[in-house]
Design a protein around this nucleic acid. Structure first.
Length: 271
DNA sequence: ATGGGCACCTGGCTGC
DNA sequence: TGCAGCCAGGTGCCCA
């Protein structure tokens, strides 16, 4: 579920509870995530102190003095900080118990998430090494993105969701950014002009920043580490609004499946 | 090289 | 009420 704004909201929510704290123990109730939680992970983390909580794309990086835990929320994952004595519920797969008596609890019904550990530079881990630029960084440059799109026949929507173009743009915010940029989602990436690509880059930045500002989007089950939903849903122009009137021009919002994902758009506002 | 499709998994909702 | 069918915030990998 979570896209970049939800992951960043999660990062900000857990950071103050983790940094500077010692990990007392790690309880793995179910190792069967997208990749099995390494058997050695609890022992590797036990006794270490959390130095920082970072993020690269949608991966959370919990850096400790013995190595870094790499955590992805997949489609349905969420992290909560709570008293370690609170009884676990279904799908509470992992607890990272801190010296404060609290724990970081990883819940993931669909188990598409992962929890891995590396002693090396996490940015060189095979899952992270080939990722494109962060959308909220200076390096996210529209001319570079435009050049990268030369000759590409894939749709602009699939293109901006491809982590080799830019990271962090998932199904909700891809539709929303394209609406704001006035670009039809099915347009070939290679057909987007330099000028329109510059607008698109601005809109991607804008929509992600606004979403982070209100704690992300909750459609079904996403909650932040304190259990609160995100409020960006009220700001969505097209996502999950098929059949409803466009909030700008009242034209009926359309939905179709593109590369196995639902795409929402306004045929009047987007060309 | 690029694009497209599949797989992984559970739960919630819809419609018969 | 029951149940089959469909859908879901991701992404690595395989195939043509």
């Amino acid at each position: 579920m979570p896209e970049l704004p939800e992951v960043e909201t999660t990062r900000r929510g857990i950071e103050p509870w983790l940094v500077g704290h010692r990990i007392e123990q790690v309880i793995v109730r179910d190792r069967r995530l997208r990749w099995p939680v390494p058997r050695a992970l609890p022992a590797r983390l036990r006794g270490s102190t959390v130095k920082a909580v970072g993020r690269r794309a949608k991966y959370l990086l919990i850096a400790t003095d013995t190595g870094t835990a790499i955590l992805h929320l997949g489609m349905s994952g969420s992290l909560r900080v709570m008293d370690a004595t609170v009884p676990p519920l279904a799908h509470d797969h992992v607890d990272i118990v801190l010296d404060s008596g609290r724990c970081l609890r990883f819940n993931d019904p669909r188990r598409f998430g992962c929890l891995l550990f590396t002693t090396g530079d996490p940015l060189r881990h095979r899952l992270l090494a080939d990722l494109a630029v962060e959308p909220l960084s200076q390096e996210f440059d529209s001319d570079a993105l435009w050049r990268h799109a030369r000759g590409r026949r894939t749709s602009i929507k699939a293109f901006i969701m491809d982590s080799r173009s830019v990271v962090g743009v998932g199904n909700i915010y891809a539709s929303e950014a394209l609406f704001r940029a006035g670009i039809r989602p099915g347009l070939a990436a290679g057909k987007v002009s330099r000028e329109r690509m510059a607008i698109l880059v601005m809109r991607i930045r804008e929509v992600l920043t606004e979403a982070i500002g209100v704690g992300g989007t909750t459609l079904r089950d996403y909650v932040d580490p304190s259990g609160m939903p995100g409020y960006f849903r009220q700001k969505l122009f097209v996502y999950d609004r098929a059949g409803q009137p466009c909030r700008k021009c009242r034209t009926t919002i359309r939905q179709y499946v593109q590369a196995q994902r639902s795409t929402y758009w306004c045929p009047h506002c987007q060309r």
